[in-house]
Amino acid sequence: MDAAVLHEYLPLYAKAALLTIRLGLLGVLLSILTGLFCAAVQYLKIPLLRIIVRVYIELSRNTPLLIQLFFIYYGLPKIGIRTDPAVCGVAGLTFLGGSYMAEAFRSGLEAIPPIQEESALSLGMTRIQAAVHVILPQALSVSVPAFVANVIFLLKETSVFSAVSLMDLMFTAKDLIGLYYDTTEALFLLVVFYLLMLLPVSILGSIVEKKVRYAGFGT
C-alpha cells in the first residue's frame, strides 16, 4: 500500500463521507416523520388513508432501494417528474425508511396492552390525549431497538447512491479505481471510512438498547 496515494485520496473520501452523513441523516429524519405518520394512521384506523398506507408499506418493504432509486431518478422524468440526484437519494431513502420506521413504531404500539388505553379513557382522557400521554411514551421505548437497527440499516443502504451519480464513499472508491487503478488503497480507505462512520452509531445503539434485546432488524 502506498502512503502517498492514501494521503492524496483522503480529502475525497472525507468529502464523500460528509455527503453520505448529510443525505443519510436527512433521509433518516424524514423516514421517522413518515413512519410516525403511517403508524398514527394505522393506530387510529383512519379509513381509506389506512389502505393507502398499507399499500405503501408493502411496496416499500418488498422492493430494493436500488430499483426504487432507478425508478425515481431515471423513470419518473419520462412522465415529467424530474429530481436532482441529492433530492432523489433522500426521497428514495425516505420511501424505503418510512415503512421500516412505521413497522418499528407499530410493533411498539401493539406491545402496549389495551388495558392501558381503556384505563386512560376511563380517567376521562380523549383518545388523542390517551395516545399522547399514555400510549406513545411507552410504545416509543419499546420501539427503540428496532429503531436503532433501522438507522444503521438506512445508513448502510446509502451505499447504492452511486447509481444516481451521488459521489458517496462507494462511488468514490469505484471512481478512483477506474481513474488511477490503485485498487488496494481505494478499497482500504472504503472499509476504514465505513467503519469510522458506522461503528460509533452501532456502539451508541448497543448502549441505548443495553437492556432491551433486539431481534429481526431491517427485514
Binding site: 431515471y74 422524468p77 440526484p85 452511486s162 447509481a163 451519480s165 469505484k174 471512481d175
Partner: peptide, 16 residues
C-alpha cells in the same frame, strides 16, 4: 458521474 452508459444517456435525456 455515472457508472454505466445506460444511466448516463438517461440522465442527459432527462436534463440532469
Amino acid at each position: 458521474k455515472y457508472d454505466t452508459y445506460a444511466n448516463a444517456k438517461n440522465a442527459i435525456e432527462n436534463g440532469n
